[in-house]
Protein backbone atom coordinates (compact mmCIF):
# COMPACT_ATOMS: atom_id res chain seq x y z
CA UNK A 1 0.00 0.00 0.00
CA UNK A 2 1.59 3.29 -1.03
CA UNK A 3 1.81 5.57 1.94
CA UNK A 4 0.64 9.13 2.01
CA UNK A 5 3.12 11.94 1.60
CA UNK A 6 4.06 13.78 4.77
CA UNK A 7 6.63 16.31 3.61
CA UNK A 8 7.79 17.48 0.19
CA UNK A 9 10.61 19.95 -0.32
CA UNK A 10 11.58 20.89 -3.84
CA UNK A 11 14.58 23.03 -4.69
CA UNK A 12 14.50 24.38 -1.15
CA UNK A 13 17.19 26.85 -0.12
CA UNK A 14 17.68 28.67 3.11
CA UNK A 15 19.85 31.48 4.34
CA UNK A 16 19.44 33.36 7.60
CA UNK A 17 18.49 37.00 7.19
CA UNK A 18 21.51 39.26 7.12
CA UNK A 19 23.99 36.56 6.13
CA UNK A 20 24.95 35.78 2.56
CA UNK A 21 25.95 32.12 3.02
CA UNK A 22 23.35 29.50 2.27
CA UNK A 23 22.69 27.10 5.13
CA UNK A 24 20.76 24.79 2.80
CA UNK A 25 20.70 24.59 -0.96
CA UNK A 26 19.04 22.43 -3.59
CA UNK A 27 17.09 20.26 -1.18
CA UNK A 28 14.68 17.89 -2.92
CA UNK A 29 13.09 15.59 -0.43
CA UNK A 30 9.96 13.58 0.01
CA UNK A 31 9.09 11.89 3.28
CA UNK A 32 6.14 9.53 3.47
CA UNK A 33 3.83 9.07 6.42
CA UNK A 34 5.08 6.46 8.87
CA UNK A 35 8.72 6.62 7.84
CA UNK A 36 11.53 6.86 10.39
CA UNK A 37 14.13 9.16 8.91
CA UNK A 38 17.49 10.14 10.42
CA UNK A 39 19.20 13.37 9.44
CA UNK A 40 22.93 13.02 9.99
CA UNK A 41 25.82 15.38 9.60
CA UNK A 42 28.52 17.23 11.51
CA UNK A 43 27.99 20.50 13.37
CA UNK A 44 26.99 23.22 10.90
CA UNK A 45 25.86 20.87 8.12
CA UNK A 46 22.36 22.41 8.14
CA UNK A 47 20.48 19.47 9.64
CA UNK A 48 18.74 21.48 12.37
CA UNK A 49 17.71 24.14 9.85
CA UNK A 50 16.20 21.44 7.64
CA UNK A 51 14.26 20.08 10.60
CA UNK A 52 12.94 23.55 11.40
CA UNK A 53 11.71 23.89 7.82
CA UNK A 54 9.88 20.57 8.14
CA UNK A 55 8.25 21.82 11.34
CA UNK A 56 7.27 25.09 9.61
CA UNK A 57 9.24 27.12 12.15
CA UNK A 58 11.25 28.39 9.19
CA UNK A 59 10.17 28.92 5.60
CA UNK A 60 12.61 28.23 2.75
CA UNK A 61 13.96 31.42 1.19
CA UNK A 62 13.82 29.72 -2.25
CA UNK A 63 11.89 26.73 -3.53
CA UNK A 64 8.80 25.25 -1.97
CA UNK A 65 7.82 23.19 1.01
CA UNK A 66 4.67 21.18 1.51
CA UNK A 67 3.66 19.81 4.87
CA UNK A 68 0.61 17.60 4.93
CA UNK A 69 -2.04 17.96 7.60
CA UNK A 70 -2.95 15.16 9.95
CA UNK A 71 -2.50 11.81 8.28
CA UNK A 72 -5.62 10.00 9.42
CA UNK A 73 -8.82 11.78 10.19
CA UNK A 74 -9.97 10.78 13.58
CA UNK A 75 -13.66 11.60 13.66
CA UNK A 76 -13.69 11.98 17.43
CA UNK A 77 -11.38 14.95 17.53
CA UNK A 78 -9.77 16.56 14.53
CA UNK A 79 -7.60 18.88 16.57
CA UNK A 80 -4.18 17.55 15.68
CA UNK A 81 -0.92 19.19 14.78
CA UNK A 82 0.89 18.15 11.58
CA UNK A 83 4.10 17.78 13.56
CA UNK A 84 5.57 18.32 17.00
CA UNK A 85 9.17 18.88 17.91
CA UNK A 86 11.37 17.86 20.84
CA UNK A 87 14.47 20.00 21.30
CA UNK A 88 17.93 19.26 22.66
CA UNK A 89 17.78 20.90 26.06
CA UNK A 90 14.85 19.78 28.22
CA UNK A 91 15.20 22.90 30.38
CA UNK A 92 14.53 25.22 27.48
CA UNK A 93 11.21 23.82 26.30
CA UNK A 94 9.25 23.65 29.51
CA UNK A 95 6.61 26.34 29.85
CA UNK A 96 4.59 25.43 32.92
CA UNK A 97 5.41 24.43 36.48
CA UNK A 98 3.48 21.18 36.96
CA UNK A 99 3.55 18.12 34.71
CA UNK A 100 -0.11 18.20 33.72
CA UNK A 101 -0.04 21.91 32.89
CA UNK A 102 3.07 21.35 30.81
CA UNK A 103 1.54 18.55 28.74
CA UNK A 104 -1.72 20.47 28.43
CA UNK A 105 -0.02 23.50 26.88
CA UNK A 106 -0.07 22.11 23.32
CA UNK A 107 -3.69 20.87 23.26
CA UNK A 108 -4.76 24.14 24.91
CA UNK A 109 -3.23 26.02 22.01
CA UNK A 110 -5.01 23.72 19.57
CA UNK A 111 -8.27 24.67 21.23
CA UNK A 112 -9.29 21.24 22.53
CA UNK A 113 -12.14 21.08 25.06
CA UNK A 114 -11.17 20.48 28.70
CA UNK A 115 -12.19 16.77 28.86
CA UNK A 116 -10.23 16.07 25.68
CA UNK A 117 -7.15 17.82 27.11
CA UNK A 118 -7.47 15.80 30.32
CA UNK A 119 -7.66 12.57 28.31
CA UNK A 120 -4.62 13.48 26.23
CA UNK A 121 -2.60 14.52 29.29
CA UNK A 122 -3.30 11.20 31.03
CA UNK A 123 -2.60 9.22 27.90
CA UNK A 124 0.63 11.03 26.93
CA UNK A 125 2.08 10.90 30.44
CA UNK A 126 1.33 7.20 30.55
CA UNK A 127 3.01 6.62 27.18
CA UNK A 128 6.12 8.36 28.49
CA UNK A 129 6.24 6.47 31.78
CA UNK A 130 5.23 9.43 33.90
CA UNK A 131 1.72 8.45 34.91
CA UNK A 132 0.54 9.36 38.36
CA UNK A 133 2.86 12.38 38.48
CA UNK A 134 0.33 14.88 37.04
CA UNK A 135 0.45 17.28 39.98
CA UNK A 136 4.19 17.15 40.58
CA UNK A 137 6.53 20.04 39.96
CA UNK A 138 8.61 19.95 36.80
CA UNK A 139 11.62 21.13 38.82
CA UNK A 140 11.59 17.90 40.82
CA UNK A 141 12.28 15.77 37.71
CA UNK A 142 15.65 14.47 36.55
CA UNK A 143 17.05 15.45 33.15
CA UNK A 144 15.89 12.21 31.54
CA UNK A 145 12.38 12.56 32.98
CA UNK A 146 12.20 16.17 31.79
CA UNK A 147 13.04 15.08 28.27
CA UNK A 148 10.33 12.42 28.41
CA UNK A 149 7.96 15.11 29.65
CA UNK A 150 8.87 17.22 26.62
CA UNK A 151 8.02 14.21 24.46
CA UNK A 152 4.71 13.78 26.30
CA UNK A 153 3.98 17.45 25.57
CA UNK A 154 4.63 16.76 21.88
CA UNK A 155 2.52 13.57 21.83
CA UNK A 156 -0.42 15.38 23.41
CA UNK A 157 -0.72 17.39 20.22
CA UNK A 158 -1.37 14.07 18.41
CA UNK A 159 1.01 14.98 15.63
CA UNK A 160 1.35 12.99 12.44
CA UNK A 161 5.12 13.44 12.71
CA UNK A 162 7.51 13.78 15.62
CA UNK A 163 10.65 15.78 14.95
CA UNK A 164 13.61 15.23 17.27
CA UNK A 165 16.38 17.83 17.31
CA UNK A 166 19.31 16.06 19.00
CA UNK A 167 16.79 15.20 21.67
CA UNK A 168 18.99 12.43 23.10
CA UNK A 169 22.32 14.18 23.25
CA UNK A 170 22.05 15.45 26.82
CA UNK A 171 20.79 12.19 28.29
CA UNK A 172 22.69 9.39 29.98
CA UNK A 173 22.65 5.93 28.36
CA UNK A 174 19.76 4.61 30.42
CA UNK A 175 17.49 7.60 29.83
CA UNK A 176 18.47 7.47 26.18
CA UNK A 177 17.31 3.87 26.00
CA UNK A 178 13.99 4.64 27.72
CA UNK A 179 13.38 7.58 25.38
CA UNK A 180 14.19 5.52 22.27
CA UNK A 181 11.76 2.82 23.35
CA UNK A 182 8.92 5.34 23.51
CA UNK A 183 9.85 6.68 20.08
CA UNK A 184 9.89 3.13 18.68
CA UNK A 185 6.44 2.39 20.04
CA UNK A 186 5.06 5.65 18.60
CA UNK A 187 6.60 4.74 15.26
CA UNK A 188 4.92 1.34 15.46
CA UNK A 189 1.61 3.18 15.84
CA UNK A 190 2.24 4.76 12.45
CA UNK A 191 3.75 8.10 13.37
CA UNK A 192 6.43 9.60 11.16
CA UNK A 193 9.73 10.19 12.97
CA UNK A 194 12.41 12.58 11.76
CA UNK A 195 15.50 12.54 13.95
CA UNK A 196 18.52 14.84 13.85
CA UNK A 197 21.70 13.56 15.43
CA UNK A 198 25.42 13.12 15.05
CA UNK A 199 25.60 9.83 16.92
CA UNK A 200 25.00 6.61 15.03
CA UNK A 201 24.09 4.77 18.27
CA UNK A 202 20.86 6.75 18.40
CA UNK A 203 19.52 5.79 15.00
CA UNK A 204 19.87 2.02 14.89
CA UNK A 205 16.11 1.76 14.45
CA UNK A 206 15.75 4.38 11.72
CA UNK A 207 14.67 3.10 8.28
CA UNK A 208 16.16 5.75 6.09
CA UNK A 209 19.28 7.87 6.47
CA UNK A 210 19.92 11.29 4.99
CA UNK A 211 23.53 12.44 5.17
CA UNK A 212 24.00 16.18 5.01
CA UNK A 213 27.16 18.06 4.21
CA UNK A 214 27.52 21.81 3.71
CA UNK A 215 23.78 22.29 3.33
CA UNK A 216 23.24 19.56 0.73
CA UNK A 217 21.86 16.07 0.96
CA UNK A 218 24.82 13.94 -0.12
CA UNK A 219 23.33 10.53 0.51
CA UNK A 220 19.79 9.25 0.92
CA UNK A 221 19.78 5.53 1.64
CA UNK A 222 18.01 2.75 3.51
CA UNK A 223 19.42 1.50 6.81
CA UNK A 224 21.03 -1.65 5.37
CA UNK A 225 23.15 0.38 2.94
CA UNK A 226 24.07 2.88 5.61
CA UNK A 227 25.42 0.27 7.99
CA UNK A 228 27.57 -1.06 5.16
CA UNK A 229 29.38 2.27 4.85
CA UNK A 230 33.05 2.26 5.83
CA UNK A 231 34.30 4.33 8.74
CA UNK A 232 36.54 6.40 6.43
CA UNK A 233 33.50 7.46 4.38
CA UNK A 234 31.50 8.27 7.51
CA UNK A 235 34.31 10.43 8.90
CA UNK A 236 33.66 12.94 6.10
CA UNK A 237 30.29 13.61 7.72
CA UNK A 238 31.75 13.94 11.22
CA UNK A 239 30.38 10.51 12.05
CA UNK A 240 32.07 7.62 13.75
CA UNK A 241 30.94 4.01 13.89
CA UNK A 242 29.85 2.98 17.39
CA UNK A 243 32.44 0.65 19.00
CA UNK A 244 30.43 -2.50 18.32
CA UNK A 245 29.92 -1.74 14.64
CA UNK A 246 33.60 -0.79 14.50
CA UNK A 247 34.47 -4.23 15.87
CA UNK A 248 32.32 -5.90 13.22
CA UNK A 249 34.00 -3.85 10.53
CA UNK A 250 37.50 -4.85 11.70
CA UNK A 251 36.47 -8.50 11.90
CA UNK A 252 35.02 -8.39 8.38
CA UNK A 253 38.14 -6.73 6.97
CA UNK A 254 40.32 -9.39 8.57
CA UNK A 255 38.05 -12.08 7.22
CA UNK A 256 36.88 -13.29 10.62
CA UNK A 257 33.22 -12.37 10.11
CA UNK A 258 31.20 -12.92 6.91
CA UNK A 259 29.37 -9.98 5.31
CA UNK A 260 26.13 -11.85 5.80
CA UNK A 261 26.35 -11.83 9.60
CA UNK A 262 24.19 -9.08 11.09
CA UNK A 263 25.80 -6.50 13.38
CA UNK A 264 23.95 -7.80 16.40
CA UNK A 265 25.55 -9.11 19.59
CA UNK A 266 23.65 -12.39 19.63
CA UNK A 267 24.37 -13.12 15.96
CA UNK A 268 28.06 -12.27 16.21
CA UNK A 269 28.42 -14.28 19.42
CA UNK A 270 26.80 -17.34 17.87
CA UNK A 271 28.86 -17.08 14.70
CA UNK A 272 32.17 -16.69 16.52
CA UNK A 273 31.34 -19.45 18.99
CA UNK A 274 30.50 -21.83 16.16
CA UNK A 275 33.58 -20.88 14.14
CA UNK A 276 36.08 -20.68 17.01
CA UNK A 277 34.68 -22.52 19.96
CA UNK A 278 34.89 -26.12 18.95
Amino acid sequence: MPRETQFILSGAEFSYPGSSGKVLSGIDLEIRAGEWVALLGSNGSGKTTLLKILSALLVPTQGSSFISGSSQDDAACGRKAPCAMVFQNPEDQIVASTLEEEVAFGPENLGCPAEEIRRRVTHSLEACGLSGMEKQLVSSLSGGQKQRLALAGALAMQPAAILLDEALSMLDPQSRRAFTEIIASEHAKGRTIVQVTHRIEEIRLAERMLLLKDGKIEFDMPREDFFRMRSEDLAAFGLELPPFEKLCEILRIRGLLPESCAADIGAVETYIYDAFGK
Partner: peptide, 24 residues
Protein backbone atom coordinates in the same frame (compact mmCIF):
# COMPACT_ATOMS: atom_id res chain seq x y z
CA UNK B 1 17.13 30.48 26.98
CA UNK B 2 14.24 32.89 26.56
CA UNK B 3 14.84 32.71 22.81
CA UNK B 4 14.81 28.92 22.88
CA UNK B 5 11.65 28.91 24.97
CA UNK B 6 9.93 31.22 22.48
CA UNK B 7 10.76 28.81 19.64
CA UNK B 8 9.58 25.84 21.72
CA UNK B 9 6.28 27.60 22.49
CA UNK B 10 5.76 28.43 18.84
CA UNK B 11 6.50 24.82 17.91
CA UNK B 12 3.72 23.77 20.23
CA UNK B 13 1.19 25.91 18.48
CA UNK B 14 1.13 28.95 20.76
CA UNK B 15 -0.43 31.87 18.90
CA UNK B 16 -1.48 34.16 21.72
CA UNK B 17 -4.74 34.20 23.61
CA UNK B 18 -7.36 33.74 20.92
CA UNK B 19 -9.12 30.36 20.83
CA UNK B 20 -6.92 28.86 23.54
CA UNK B 21 -8.76 26.44 25.78
CA UNK B 22 -7.81 25.33 29.28
CA UNK B 23 -7.15 22.03 31.00
CA UNK B 24 -8.69 23.39 34.18
Amino acid sequence: RADNLAVAMEARGYRGGSCRTRLN
